[in-house]
Design a binder for these strands. Structure first.
Lengths: 233, 233
DNA sequence: CAGTGGTCTAGACCACGGA
DNA sequence: CCGTGGTCTAGACCACTGG
């Protein structure tokens, strides 16, 4: 029955607090010894839990300072770099936000049964003021009650924190699949390029802590002056 | 002077043995307690070293069985999957192998001084008997003495193990950069596609254990029936 | 069953950061 | 200086694997 390791329980509790903004981003959380006392486990167990959360980019640790809530960098999970290696701040504009019945691809990606509804969001992203990326986000409507009635202008730039804070859904993992594709006429128009220009397509499914699919994202980006990288540089 | 943690020393020693084929791939190495005794450290320290090597895909562990040398899967670091998620065995043919003075890009990628020589290898790779990928490998000649005189036919399909066993150079890390590009006439010819077809370009620098660049690899692949993925699926 | 890795504890000392 | 995380130890019990 209860074969789950202790550190998994600790992780789960801490994840819940992080989702609820129990601590602010950047804030130090209690020391390992304090947490060990609170959870009635040893420091080693706390350490194991914290290490796991650090490797999931939920926390950061600094010797002599403490363990802090990760400042979900302004880049978030944004993986495009300029050719010289410098990272640029992405800007985004939401073009459309609407609800609909999930189609076949969406049901497959989000593991939904037939008939479920989804929310579709179309965004364009800019790097250095140039349009570089067009992306479609698809969310299961039942997990985001009321989101379909929000104005496109009110959707924040970094949506993962938004999911956490407004809907209590922390994103802790993702699976990406990449392809090279040719720009469609619509994409060519938005990105100010010629039809059939090669684009990088990034298909990404984001998961909550128990591997439940939360978001299906299809991005198509221009890599004429940027490259994609998700390794630790 | 010597502030390197103990487990780092252990890792280094074990890595050296793995490179020398001290244990065969798939073979179990001594238990944690045996290793702890040999290295005169605690089991916890050995465990930490082994954990790190496991996360580098050098070892695999199974509760109740032991710790084994990773069977560098027939896929190696090959990251193309068929659209249905199935992994296919890549076949490769070496088209050319030659030595030359390193050009600017090669010196940058491999961190070489001007005047150094490199070995260039041009390969074509097949998936399900269809040509899907053209790649250029560039190696610092001084690290691979005699390799430039080898016949293209004698170069094995999986080169990383070859580097380890013939030249004592274990590859433990890599950095990848991806772009979408248009097929050149040469590539179109080899891959049996039209010029300007979108291709995924994978630029990969492979490192030895102390971050020394060993191989610069530029791959261009057709993603009409495959996708690229380097996350744990 | 014996032996393995997986978890957990309690304690020690060190290296670093900030007041 | 104190408190933090980083390393290391020694020992305990559990869960799984194989013969």
């Amino acid at each position: 029955m209860k074969k789950r390791p202790l550190y998994e329980k600790v992780k789960e509790t801490l994840l819940g607090r992080l989702a609820k903004d129990f601590w602010r981003p950047g804030e130090l959380l209690p020391s390992e010894l304090k947490l060990a006392e609170e959870f009635r486990v040893s420091q080693g167990t706390i350490r194991r839990a914290l290490d796991d959360l650090v490797s999931q980019n939920m926390l950061t640790r600094h010797q002599g300072r403490g363990t802090a809530v990760a400042e979900h960098t302004p880049f978030g999970f944004f993986h495009l770099f300029r050719d010289d290696g410098v990272r640029e701040l992405p800007e985004s504009k939401t073009l459309r936000l609407s609800g609909a019945r999930a189609n076949r691809s969406e049901r497959d990606a989000l593991e939904l049964a037939a008939g479920n509804r989804v929310i579709r969001i179309l965004r364009i992203r800019y790097l250095n003021l140039e349009p570089k990326m067009l992306e479609t986000l698809t969310l299961p409507q039942k997990l985001f009650p009321g989101l379909e009635k929000i104005s496109a202008r009110d959707l924040p730039n970094t949506v993962y924190r938004f999911y956490e804070q407004q809907f209590g859904i922390p994103i802790v993992g993702k699976r990406e699949r990449l392809r090279a594709v040719a720009a469609t006429p619509t994409e060519a128009l938005h990105l100010n390029i010629e039809v059939d220009t090669p684009l990088m397509e990034i298909e990404c499914v984001a998961f909550s802590h128990k591997r439940q699919p939360i978001e299906w994202r299809l991005s198509r980006c221009l890599t004429d002056e940027h490259y994609y990288c998700n390794s630790p540089e």
